[in-house]
Design a protein around this nucleic acid. Structure first.
Length: 442
RNA sequence: CGGGGCGUAGCGCAGCCUGGUAGCGCAUCUGCUUUGGGAGCAGAGGGUCGAGUGUUCGAAUCACUCCGCCCCGACCA
């Protein structure tokens, strides 16, 4: 991609109505634009990042043999009446009616719908276990939307649902999703920790929130900081004993949200120097339901004795659009965003220092043609001042900048600037690719 | 949902108190000069002042109503 073609109109000044750094930076870097309170357009740059995150989540679900489907955004009120959540969910649910006055709603979540879907297909104990997910827009009519896409009304969520034949099996699915989540967040380049949590209107008996610690987060967390010492092992997902063992390891450490926090227990059992009270952003939330939904919706299967039983289920959410903001919130500086390489809109920013110079232009063009075949790259080919070029790439947070200017290229050198450290290295043009491979994971 | 605040050019703001028909910075366009960290000079374009009603000879300015948006508190991916 060339900047001369790319739809990118960064703002020099900070928007006044944004409070969080992530919100300001997303507006300044032209990633999003608000269209109504808590409702946003994802502009090209923002959409690339959103899709990158989606795809990382997709790939890892695929690795775990979890299948994707796509449920609609608009649902009929019928199932929600059966589960009795049509009234319980309250004003957060956006209710709509169609031309025939049928009651519809813009889905805030999909437990009812997915339970109804699978109950038509999963009839024998032999059909289990199954985990399905989709990545779909949700709408929750928040009392007070704020902080950009962090707490908005329309948001993109990955929600997975597990279906099993017993408590034991269902708990195992819960544990596997727990580990999958740790793996996903690690891959996204962020340190999100699991916390015991309340189940809220989603319901159930067991629940964990995955929270990314940040100074401005809305969730309060209490934990034993040595939980970070647990080494996340890439264990075999089908090895049930290893899965349970690793979960047990996590549950040995104190980590609770404020709703679950027990002050006395915390102080008695966790050493003072290890006690951590902090704030963070909830980016994932998992729930064990047991038969809560299957009973309401009458979802049964036949066991090996030919007897009908209720299906055991759980649900597992990741706030995909919120993650974009959360990642920024944990990785930025005074110049702008610093993307982890995995989610960066482009991994490399190529800068031709001066378009008017034949030598640097020739090299820039050649480098671009060569690199674009193999790498995600954006090429700054416009005739604007160098300061602008550098500041824009700093703002949009590309991990590496290749700066090609007449002075250095005449000595066969290219400047390689690392966004995070700001460090600039002069690298011989023939060794650029090796250098990038060695120092960056792409 | 309660409390506070804001709405004037694409963005950021001044003008409002004390009514007289709209201004600044950035951005945009043209020209010249510049060219290694958001350039300089000269010129130009761009507004039914959120909407409606009222008061007045006259309303961005005063009053009322509505709409939109932001912030602070109780809820949530």
């Amino acid at each position: 991609m060339r900047t001369s073609n790319f739809y990118l109109f960064p703002l020099k000044e900070n928007p006044t109505d944004a409070f969080l750094a992530s919100h300001k930076l997303m507006l300044r870097s032209n990633m999003i634009r608000q269209s109504a309170t808590g409702i946003y357009t994802w502009l090209p740059l923002g959409l690339i990042v959103l899709k990158n995150i989606e795809n990382i989540i997709r790939d890892l679900h695929k690795d775990f043999m979890i299948q994707e489907l796509l449920m609609p955004t608009i649902q009929s009120a019928e199932l929600w009446k059966k589960s009795e959540r049509y009234s319980d969910y309250g004003k957060e649910m956006l209710r709509i009616s169609d031309r025939n006055k049928a009651e519809l709603l813009y889905g805030p979540t999909n437990e009812e719908l997915i339970t109804d879907i699978v109950s038509k297909d999963l009839r024998s104990y032999k059909d289990f276990p199954k985990i399905l997910y989709h990545i779909q827009w949700k709408f929750r009519d928040e009392v007070r939307p704020r902080f950009g896409v962090m707490r908005c009304r329309e948001f993109l969520m990955k929600d997975a649902y597990s279906f099993d034949t017993s408590y034991e099996n269902s708990y195992l699915s819960y544990c596997k999703m727990f580990l999958l989540y740790l793996k996903i967040f690690k891959k996204l380049g962020i340190n999100a920790l699991p916390f015991e949590a309340e189940t809220g209107p989603i319901g159930g008996t067991l629940s964990h929130e995955f929270i990314l610690e940040t100074a401005n987060g809305e969730s309060e967390i209490f934990y034993d900081k040595t939980i970070n010492d647990i080494e996340f092992k890439n264990i075999d997902f089908n090895d049930n004993e290893k899965v349970k063992k690793l979960i047990l390891e996590y549950s040995n450490y104190y980590s609770k949200t404020s709703e679950k926090h027990k002050k006395k227990f915390f102080e008695k059992n966790v050493k003072l120097e290890n006690r951590k009270y902090s704030k963070g952003i909830e980016i994932g939330h998992i729930f064990y339901f047991g038969t809560k939904y299957s009973k309401k919706l009458n979802s049964m299967f036949l066991d090996n004795n030919g007897k009908s039983n209720f299906i055991y289920s759980g649900s597992y959410g990741i706030g995909v659009s919120r993650l974009v903001a959360a990642i920024i919130e944990s990785s930025y500086d005074e110049k702008g965003i610093i993307w982890p390489a995995e989610v960066a809109p482009f991994k490399i920013g190529l800068i031709n220092v001066r378009v008017g110079d034949n030598l640097s232009t020739e090299y820039s063009e050649n480098f671009y043609k060569f690199f674009k075949k193999k790498y995600s790259i954006i090429y700054e080919d416009r005739d604007i001042r160098l300061g602008q070029k550098l500041n824009i790439f700093d703002l949009i947070g590309l991990p590496v900048q290749l700066i090609i200017g007449e002075k250095n290229i005449s000595n066969n050198n290219i400047e390689v600037k690392d966004r995070k450290s700001g460090k600039i290295s002069l690298i011989s043009k023939d060794q650029i690719e090796d250098y990038l491979k060695k120092n960056y994971e792409f």
